[in-house]
Design a protein around this nucleic acid. Structure first.
Lengths: 350, 350
DNA sequence: AAAGCCTAGTAATACGTATTACTACCCATA
DNA sequence: TATGGGTAGTAATACGTATTACTAGGCTTT
């Protein structure tokens, strides 16, 4: 018999009923089964190499104790840190976390959604476009599509629009951007460029608005924004064009705020290609503080996001949600990390 | 009734039996159900917002059409690329891939293994220590522990020891290292250092052996090896000590081979700390060709691993295994990518 | 008209587990 | 001897699906 052993096989081997096996292996046999019998059941289970069938258990219990963490990409280690935090809290409560990289990055789903999102008890979704999330929870075109989170499994969103129906655990990206602008302004920069991610997600919209507001609040400061893909090459090409078109005049920005560290790496390349010194000719800032930030030369001034804490708090919120609670959304602060990629502009513009 | 609707609810709503619902929604109703009835079943399902319970389906079918990809870490984007390849092939066959970052990196498990590895049809495991894999498939101390892959779910290993019982899909890391040594030797280097990962996994043992053999085959060449953690800081500290102890004499290596790109980033830092020019005073090489390699300044000479292809081939092998086939292990070549971090040694040592 | 076939479904069942309700037995007490 | 209570288990059941075997009724063929 090469068939995988079931609890009934164990029962036969131990000379007891299947119920007894279940009770013993669940550890709930105190006062219901004799020590001797319990021992022989465990022995039989070990001997047969029995492991419970999770599909059956899930069906019976109506839960899987598994949570799906949806991330836009695995190319950015930021989400690995989010996972770490979520997994730690989950483990404390007997839950597992499994990662599902969204097929289309930050964007909405194209084609059928194939993730096993029904065999799970809840979903954590990070930094996704809004459309993607409603598609996730309820198939488009079906009733409830406008009520994401009311149907399907409980959902907690990370780094997403707090105005949605699902609880959100956020990084205060607006404050982070304000800190960067404040830092640059303090150094004397007045002509700022913002290289924005070309993704319609809350987190990026918020960054753009925060930068605009912060610069607007400065006297005699100017801001120009351009969009680019969140890749080294995409950012590099965008900045190269930018410098080619406007780089000659006195109009050129003296500081470049990038929407994330990966884009900053591309900006470094483009600046070097154009013969600009960093930070002498151009100060550059990132966002996230991933590994890359410190590896760049000069080391990148950026905002460190509490990725691990983000994962922890999100998981806690989801557990509360599973427990019929009503978690409040919250927002964690980031930290301005000043390194070597920012300096006073060589020639003051005031 | 806020209970989630079942196929029986749909049946009642459509005025048919549950079997009919199941048949219609599975799309197998050709010639068994009238067009009119099929239509009303689908309409009822949509109206109720019915979605099948996967636990029940999995139990009934005895399969989940889900594969677990176990990776040592999400901090290294290499594994994101492996995922991409695996997911593509899986999707073509109606499978989903879910990622499980091993709690202890490349190493064996500590404490109970909490991954949902039973609710899946197969496992892909990448770059893990051997002990970790046997623990995964069969709990330690149980029969079959020495026959990983014979019990439990089918397993395909990536970047792992081909001598194991599970089929392996590998990168030819030995050839990659030989190419790097050959490149450096061609530039005139004779005193080589190898900064090795302090992990007891096949992939790193193989790299070390390949470097040793390649250097041994060179006339009048010398090699020194040290181990370090696979982190920027770990590598940086190791190289700092190394340069401090041996860096003064003529004994110092003129080229430093690092076991992966992340370690190379740490080596950059240490070299800069010591006032060494790269590649003038010290050539440095990496391995993997992750994003970081091109972002470093100077850009890193490394070996590009076909991560996406690796994931694709591994998934294909697993599907074959699930189909009762006997896939042969295979090994994909890497590509030497020469960038700016390697150059002839400033003063020849011969 | 009898026999067979096609159409359009349905009833019954099994997957493997966890749990609830029950029972048989033994012993102590009245 | 009857009653009650504790001990050590077991029988039965439900979770929701997919599938197999079956049936009722109408139609065609000989």
């Amino acid at each position: 018999m090469s068939r995988r052993p079931t609890s009934r096989d164990v029962a036969v081997a131990a000379g007891v009923s299947q119920s007894t096996v279940s009770i013993v292996l669940a550890g709930k046999w105190q006062g219901r089964v004799s020590v001797h019998t319990a021992q022989s059941v465990r022995e039989a289970a070990t001997r047969l190499g029995y492991r419970p069938n999770l599909a059956a258990r899930n069906l019976r219990l109506g839960q899987t104790r598994t949570v799906l963490l949806i991330v836009p990409t695995l190319a950015n280690p930021f989400f690995g840190a989010v996972y770490t935090g979520a997994a730690r809290i989950a483990a404390e409560h007997g839950f597992s976390v499994v990662v599902y990289p969204w097929p289309d990055g930050h964007g909405p789903a194209r084609g059928p959604f194939s993730a096993p999102h029904e065999a799970i008890d809840g979903v954590l979704a990070s930094s996704m476009a809004t459309d993607a999330l409603t598609d996730l929870v309820v198939a488009p075109g079906q009733p409830g599509h406008d009520r994401a989170g009311d149907m399907g499994v409980p959902l907690v969103m990370l780094d997403s629009d707090p105005a949605g129906t699902a609880p959100t655990v956020n990084v205060d990206v607006a404050d982070g951007m304000r800190a960067l602008v404040g830092h640059l302004a303090g150094l004397g920069h007045r002509r700022l460029w913002h290289l924005a991610a070309d993704i319609d997600a809350w987190t990026f919209r918020t960054r753009a608005r925060a930068v605009a507001a912060a610069v607007a609040a400065l006297p005699d400061a100017a801001l120009v924004r351009r969009a680019a893909p969140i890749t080294v090459d995409g950012a590099r090409a965008a900045v190269r064009r930018w410098l080619g078109e406007e780089g000659r005049g006195a109009d050129r920005g003296t500081a470049l705020l990038c929407d994330d560290d990966v884009m900053a790496a591309g900006a470094y390349k483009a600046a070097r290609d154009a013969g600009l010194d960093i930070p002498g000719d151009l100060s550059i800032t990132g966002f996230d503080d991933i590994l890359l930030a410190e590896a760049l030369e000069p080391e990148l001034t950026t905002v460190r996001l509490p990725a691990v804490a983000l994962g922890e708090r999100a998981m806690s919120a989801l557990l509360e949600l599973l427990d019929q609670g009503r978690p409040r959304g919250l927002s964690l602060p980031g930290d301005l990390i000043v390194r070597a990629s920012t300096a006073p502009p060589r020639r003051a513009t005031t």
